[in-house]
Design a protein around this nucleic acid. Structure first.
Length: 425
RNA sequence: GCGGUCGUAGUGUAGUGGUUAGCACAAGAGUUUGUGGAACUCUUAGGGGGAGUUCGAAUCUCCUCGACCGCCCCA
């Protein structure tokens, strides 16, 4: 503990305060509207799953599973993990709930926190919110394009600038093993000239060498055999079709033959979305792809699937950097000020009358000075302040003060709701 | 897991070995106790934590915690 007298949030996790909620709400609104339009059903899965689900689904050798999971043991000696991403859990749910017997393709979306034990950094947290879309039971390439389109549309609707899609194909079990061999033998011949990290990658996950940013590895990457040249017929035509769809809907993409993702379950299409604007966040805003083998791997029926996820914190920070507004806060138009205990009681009652008529009224019942209450009303930007004092309470009236002009009218307390409603129009 | 920068009231900052640790904003109370947006007064509240050096540490050293930024990896 950093300070024995104070608690603080744990490393890499932070509060989302009221002032930031508008960004999250805006994102949620846009995402849920789009999900609804495209016919996705919302799903929530538990934050905790069996460790083995992730190990098997994401891949034992991946960094996410090997060193970034929050693992815990229960009293019953079960090994559980906080979800580092949603897909494995959703696939589990798809299988467990027999969703294969629902009309296919089955479309699901989600929005919620994930956990990864990593070093916190720009756009990276140990607790972070992801939203994502998954489509099960459809192998057609049009689905891949549609998933990309959905994410592009979400970002477009959020007014994020300079969006770019990077796309690649990582092949499938027919062609990827062969390509890996090819790449390995190529790299073996150049092993002396690659960076130390790549030497390690070469052993652990050859494909990741393609992702290296080291200067000295670039020429080696350029001359390396590219997976796109070695896709099997099926993967090749699938990928070609995806690109044709993207051309058709005029999405700005670039082929990135070096794009390989860190989760093992991908087959065929993989992609990431970025914003290339100033304040340049090199982090992907969203990433995903096709995972045709995952459902079967997790002991379900052989079911093709495709999906992607986006990082909410990264989007929020980009929105701030690009001066994009969050969801609009409701305005405070009416403030109810009271003086004296009798007025306070009447005020409590009057507030309920307003609530029943769906008129938002702010108040500060805890304050006793009228001055302080008017001050608050002013700061909240109220158009009218209703003043209810001892005198008014006795007479059954309320003073309606126009905050702009300072003009005040005395109206009957039974009519004030209707009168205020009228004035606000 | 590895490297770099940093850590003073709620926020933003000043102060480089001895100061009542200063300022601004915010918050709260008030200036004829029933009238806001100005001014003024007052109040709340501070050197991340722990050790060490020293007569004396916010200031120097070490450890630790945290934040930010890279690497790795990812959303």
């Amino acid at each position: 503990m950093a300070n024995k007298n104070k608690f603080q949030s744990v490393t890499g996790m932070h509060d989302i305060l009221p002032e930031d909620q508008k960004y999250y709400r805006k994102i949620y609104d846009v995402v849920s509207n789009i999900a609804e339009f495209y016919g996705f059903g919302k799903i929530d899965t538990p934050i905790v799953e069996e460790t083995e689900l992730f190990a098997k689904g994401i891949g034992l050798a991946t960094d996410v599973v090997k060193k970034e999971m929050y693992n815990l043991k229960t009293k019953g000696d079960d090994s559980l993990s906080l979800r580092p991403e949603w897909t494995a859990g959703i696939v589990r749910s798809y299988i467990e709930n027999g969703m294969h017997s629902l009309p296919q393709p089955l479309k699901l979306w989600y929005f919620g926190p994930c956990y990864r034990y990593e070093r916190p950094q720009a756009g990276r947290y140990r607790q972070f919110w992801q939203f994502g879309f998954e489509i099960f039971g459809e192998s057609s390439s049009v689905i891949d394009a549609q998933i990309i389109q959905i994410f592009y549309n979400i970002f477009k609707e959020l007014k994020l600038k300079d969006l770019i899609i990077e796309i690649n194909s990582v092949g499938d079990s027919n062609c990827r093993p062969y390509y890996k061999k090819l790449l390995s033998s190529y790299l073996k011949s150049r092993e002396s000239s690659i960076c130390p990290d790549c030497k390690r990658r070469f052993k652990e996950n050859v494909l990741r060498v393609l992702d290296c940013k080291e200067e000295k590895c670039q020429p080696i990457k350029t001359e390396a055999p590219q997976i796109l040249d070695h896709l099997c017929d099926e993967c090749h035509s699938h990928f070609k079709e995806v690109l044709e769809f993207l051309d058709e809907i005029e999405l700005p993409y670039t082929l990135n033959p070096y794009l390989v993702r860190g989760l093992d379950y991908y087959t065929k299409t993989v992609f990431e979305l970025f914003s290339e604007s100033e304040g340049g966040c090199k982090n992907a805003l969203a990433g995903g792809g096709r995972y045709d083998k995952l459902v079967k791997l997790l002991r379900g029926r052989d079911t093709p699937a495709c999906g992607a996820a986006a990082g909410t914190e990264r989007i929020v920070s980009l929105m701030k950097a690009q001066d994009i507004e969050g969801a609009k806060e409701p305005e405070t138009q009416i403030f109810l000020a009271q003086l004296g205990s009798m007025a306070k009681r009447k005020g409590l009652w009057l507030l309920e009358e307003f609530r029943k008529s769906k008129v938002r009224v702010a108040e500060s019942f805890g304050k006793n000075s009228l001055k302080a209450q008017l001050n608050r009303a002013d700061k909240l930007g109220a158009k009218y302040t209703l003043i209810l004092g001892q005198k008014e309470a006795l007479d059954g009236v309320v003073i309606v003060r126009n905050m702009k002009t300072g003009k005040q009218d005395v109206v009957k307390i039974d009519e004030v709701v209707a009168i205020v409603k009228k004035r606000l129009k």
